[in-house]
Design a protein around this nucleic acid. Sequence first.
RNA 1: GACCCCGUAGCUCAGCUGGAUAGAGCAACAGCCUUCUAAGCUGUAGGCCGCGCGUUCGAAUCGCGCCGGGGUCACCA
Length: 554
Amino acid sequence: MHMKRYLHERLSVALATLNYSNVSKLTFEKPRVEAHGDLTTNIAMLLAKALGKNPRAIAQELVNTLKVEVEFVSAVEIAGPGFINFKFTERFFNKHLGTILENGDTFGRSSVGGKKKTQVEFVSANPTGPLSVGHGRQAAIGDTLANLLEWTGHDVTREYYYNNAGRQMRMLADSTYARYRQLFDASFVFPEDGYQGDYIREIAQRIKEEMGDALCSMETEKAIEQCKVFAEGALFDAIKAVLGRMGVQFDVFFNEDSLYSSGKIREVIQEFRTMGLAYDQDGAVWLKATSLGLDQDRVIVKSTGEPTYRLPDIAYHREKFRRGFELVVDVFGADHIATIPDVLAGVKALGYDPEKVKVIIHQFVTLMRDGQQVKMSKRSANFVTLDELIDEVGADAVRFFFLMRGVSTHLEFDLNLALEQSEKNPVYYVQYAHARIASILRHAESQGLLSPDAIMKPDSVDLSLLNQPEEIALVKMLLDFPEIIDSACFGFEPQRITTYLHEVATAFHKFYHEHRVVTPDRNLSVARLALCQATKTVLANGCKILGISAPERM
RNA sequence: GACCCCGUAGCUCAGCUGGAUAGAGCAACAGCCUUCUAAGCUGUAGGCCGCGCGUUCGAAUCGCGCCGGGGUCACCA
């Protein structure tokens, strides 16, 4: 980060001096091979064609013109077809190690987001059953993206959109009522399409415990309504509870029903009609999606008078804009993929910029048990809930595993591995590094070396004593953290954080293995303790973003 | 049939807006604890990056076409 900024500045000057204007193409990256230095740029090769010159010759010109401090840059070399490789001094890295210590738990935060008002919508499950494993992946992704957006300086609202009306809720009520009646009369008929899950029986049992047989003698419709209220309340409580176990807190629960009661739905239909984008056919209202560039028109109000999901979704997204969100992030499961074009087209027709809506589609989670796929279906009795998964492997492992893969890839979750070999989970590897550092710091303190607070003042530490390869490698890696956050955030790729933290942990474990921290040499010990503290800070901050704990002991 | 995602080591997957010699974990094999946490470290082995063509100085990465696997295509949400 610092390295890139520094070099970009200096090389820009050199380019300008030589009248090579293509500064916008100037980028730096980390070479894969260590021998190629700390950073490399391909600018000479990019300029070669336009200038009609040999890239190595251009590189040579640039190197001759470039001015850098010997104190910071130890080597500038031209290599291969025309790469310019830079090697930095230990002093340069150690100087910036101090900034980690100074910033502490804010290291990695930036203000590039400019307090942009941002909404992250995720989970958004209707209260018809417990959250599934798939919802868990969505919760982890959505919450972590929200964290990343906060760390980059966005003003973030976490939102959950739900619907407690309509057919599904009716089925929930009917199912609950039937299970309740069955507690008194086993022959009572269960609805054909009812929810089969055991959770319905449990809710029915609780109704019985609270109200006895009162609902049996009640008018059926009234009793069913009672069941709906009870079941909805119970399920929503359960959903919030399991989200709490995942460390997820929502700022807003947005009820779809409010779009109806406030007339927002009607308003959208009216506007579509006015614009000639809605028409009646077969007793239904159709959205003329073909006029919006889509392949077929879609029903927005059924012949029964009920809207399809598209209409409220469009109205909801318009409200997001009306509420002032400048960036809207929707995290959906792959089953929603077909609905997105309709909604975005509708939003665009209403005069809002669909570019401001970033839709993150995550693929499904497959649970493997004994080498076989665990079938999951909300309708059938056989499904693994998020609660059960957390019971089995713990919330930290659940979140970390869900965040290890790119969102667009299918995720295989091997329960046996997670269960039988939990010590080998990558999450423990990262957490162990943190706990190990904590242990070292405790040990140092007990040796009277210094108090942890004192380490935080880089001025009192001679960081130049950190000159071993493992030390330098670790420092370099730590300094990448802000850039990793940036790329994870703007690419909507939370797995970069998990991958990075694993690498940091590896670099630390290697350092630990090669060098003793607490030694008879007081100054060296203090410098290494500072490095430990900086590592601990980065690990802790990374875990915070991922929503997992960073334990002091394990 | 149309559209979306995936195809990289035996398995599960990283690989950033194209860069120089392809990465991790697990599984396998061989080593390392009198010293700050061995939940760790070191080493060995393992690859036509699905296939083909194209763009480029340069492709696992971008484009097109195939082939495989998964998903979605309601007046369900």
